[in-house]
């Protein structure tokens, strides 16, 4: 049986009268592909921020790769995020004045040592080896998102966290990106995708539904092949 890579124990996020998350208890196993679904205001982004060490829950305990992260300070959270999590965003968030390979290397730079050879290999894996010297503005939407994926993977994270990864892509590019996710999953990566799209969620093995900050459903996607 795989060990749990992520555990949320009674986690809440309360800002005054606003309860963004309420009493969430959830475990994610290593190698699992989980989708977190919900409409706008459901709390899925808040949950992603907590899991991604970008924010701290006001209540409850969060354990990531065996380490309690709920009460760490900002500096320690940054280190955890750097070492254990690969982030992929809907808006891509690339550095405009660095080339594709440099955008991958920047993640290496703050982790350990920037290595161009390794960065080029990461780009090859997502089919962007021939675009290594191009600036982000010279890449299509799909290519930029693939670049984000390469950047997220470069430091061999324990967990890949994607926020609406296909939100800004056309159908063809959506399929390309989801195929890459399938490849990663097949290789043993743990993936959590936050999405409002049932089509995207359908690719995941397990889907958690959020509504008004509460977890209302946690179901296995029977149509998706087991890992």
């Amino acid at each position: 049986m795989s060990k749990n890579i992520l555990e949320l124990h009674d986690v809440s996020m309360i800002y005054g009268p606003v309860k963004a998350l309420q009493n969430i208890t959830l475990s994610v196993q290593q190698g699992e592909w989980l989708a977190i679904m919900g409409s706008s205001g459901s709390g899925k982004t808040t949950m992603m921020n907590i899991v991604g060490c970008m924010n701290k829950a006001t209540h409850g305990v969060v354990v990531l790769d065996g380490e309690k992260i709920s009460r760490l300070n900002a500096k320690d959270l940054t280190a955890i995020r750097r070492d254990k999590i690969g982030l992929i965003f809907q808006q891509f968030h690339l550095i405009s004045y660095l080339t594709a390979v440099e955008n991958v290397m920047i993640a290496q730079y703050y982790h350990s040592l920037a290595d161009e050879k390794e960065a080029l290999e990461a780009l090859e894996r997502v089919g962007l080896g021939h675009r290594a010297r191009h600036l982000p503005r010279q890449l299509s939407g799909g290519e930029q998102q693939r670049l984000c994926i390469a950047r997220a993977l470069i430091n061999h994270p324990k967990l890949i966290l994607a926020d609406e990864p296909t939100g800004n892509l056309d159908e063809a590019n959506q399929e390309t990106v989801m195929n890459i996710f399938h490849q990663l999953h097949a290789q043993g990566s743990t993936i959590i995708v936050v999405t409002h799209s049932p089509e995207v969620a359908a690719h995941a093995r397990r889907v958690v539904h959020l509504e008004y900050g509460r977890m209302i459903r946690d179901e296995v996607n029977v149509e998706c092949p087991a890992a």
């Binding site: 500096k75 690339l94 550095i95 920047i106 993640a107 703050y110």
Partner: peptide
């Protein structure tokens, strides 16, 4: 701000 925010997210500390 955005650039610095992104660098924080990929692991740059405030000191860096």
């Amino acid at each position: 701000k955005k650039e610095f925010g992104l660098l924080r997210l990929v692991g740059a500390s405030r000191a860096a």
